[in-house]
Each structure stands twice: as C-alpha cells, then as structure tokens.
Simulated scan of single mutants.
Amino acid sequence: MALYSIGDVAERCGINPVTLRAWQRRYGLLKPQRTEGGHRLFDEDDIERIEEIKRWIESGVPVGKVKALIEGENVNIDDGWFALQEEMLAVLRLVRPSKLRTKIATIGKENPAEMLIDHVFVPIRQRLGLDQNTARAMCSLLDGALIDYIAFCLTGSRKKAGKDALLIGWGLTDRTRLWLEAWRLSQQGWRIDVLAEPLDSPRPELFPGQHIFVYTGKAFTKRQQEQISHWQAQGFSITAHGH
C-alpha cells in the first residue's frame, strides 16, 4: 500500500501540517505510521479518515467532539463550542496578552475560521458586551489580539493563489467585526485588504479596477441595496457581504 508524507497529505487534503499534528497529538484523531527516523507516514485509510474529520468540522462540529462522533457516541455539538468559549474566557481573565495570542493561534489552526467566528469569537464578544465595566477592558484586549492574528492570516493568504479584493465597512461601528469578516473572506479564496476606517459611503470610484466587498454589520437597507445596484450598473465590481 502506498504511503505518503505529512507534506503530501497536507497538500492533497488541503490541511495545514500543523493542524494534522494537532489532530493526532491533542485529539487522538489520527494514528499515522512512522519511519525509522520518526517521520509520519499516512496510507489511504488515513486520508479517508482525514476527509471524514474535515466533513464533520465543516458541518459545524468542534474538533474536540469529532472523535466521539466518529466512534458513534451521542454528542451535544453546542456544548463543544460553549466549552471553547469558556476556555477562551479563562485565558482572557489572566490578562496576559502573550497567552491570549497563543490560545487564539492554537484554536485558529485546529478549527475553520468561519466556525470560530460564528461559534466562538462573536458570541464571546457579545457576552462581554453585556457588562459595561471590567468586561469592556477584556473585550478590548481580545479585539487587539484578534486583529493581530487576523492580520497575520491575511498576510499568509495573500501569498497564495487567489483573487484580490478590498473590504470596506459601510456605516459600521464595530471595527473588529470588519476584521473577522476579512478573515472569513480570506478562507474563501480571496486575498483581502481591509480599509481599516469604516466609511459613511464606500465611494468605489476611489478604487478603480478593484473588486470591493462592503459590510454593514446588519441587514442592508433598501437604499443601500439600490446604491450597490447603481454602482454595479456603472461598471464597478462591488458586492454586498454578509446579510
């Protein structure tokens, strides 16, 4: 039977080697063979298992719950995401930026960006937003670490093949959410640049020849939808992102 290196499997399955190692070491999801030198070797059965793990995760299952599902156990998926939120909050309460950055990077390697945005980071920020005192400082600390990590991810995505685009906040007050959406788009094959300061009007004529995504953080109004259609009719490549 053919055997493949971790680099070959990562390229074939579209999974970072760091993630494959985490799936093995931390979650016991993989059991590759080893060369005499200790290098991992994967066979076709391993690759099928990796694809199965990917399907579970992409369907919204936290990576920590996947092994139980594969083994046929009953699992509450929502509990898994809530547990990850609690882990993040516990690290946040330490008020140690370096530990927070490490935690974000770790879960960022192990879970799809879209799932982390929707099931971990947005809910945590909403929970922190309910408290106007200490939690506001904690949320600000989290936002800084998130933007730092997302900027790193966007830089990496620009080195890959893809389509260039600019993300603009339109009347948006939550700047961190803009960066989270930039991260989401970068995972969909876009090489994203972010206009860090939201605008009252995107003014696509200032960015000729560029594809533009606009994000409002809420449902687009009828007037905004009409304005986007008007810009498109004028030949601008502009798309409403999100709602």
Rank of each mutant, 00 (worst) to 15 (best):
R101C: 02
T102L: 11
K103I: 00
K109A: 15
K109Y: 13
N111W: 08
N111E: 15
A113W: 00
A113I: 05
M115C: 13
I124R: 07
I124K: 05
R127P: 00
G129W: 01
G129H: 03
D131S: 10
N133L: 15
T134M: 09
T134E: 12
A137Y: 09
A137S: 03
M138A: 05
M138S: 06
S140F: 01
L141W: 13
A145P: 03
A145S: 14
L146P: 01
I147S: 04
Y149R: 15
Y149H: 15
I150V: 13
A151T: 14
F152L: 11
F152H: 10
L154F: 04
L154E: 02
A161L: 14
G162Y: 09
D164F: 12
A165M: 03
A165V: 04
L166P: 00
G169R: 01
L178T: 02
W179C: 07
L180Q: 05
E181R: 12
W183C: 03
W183I: 06
R184E: 07
L185W: 05
S186V: 01
S186N: 04
Q187F: 06
Q188N: 12
R191I: 05
R191H: 13
R191K: 15
R191Q: 15
D200Y: 11
P202G: 03
P204D: 04
L206K: 10
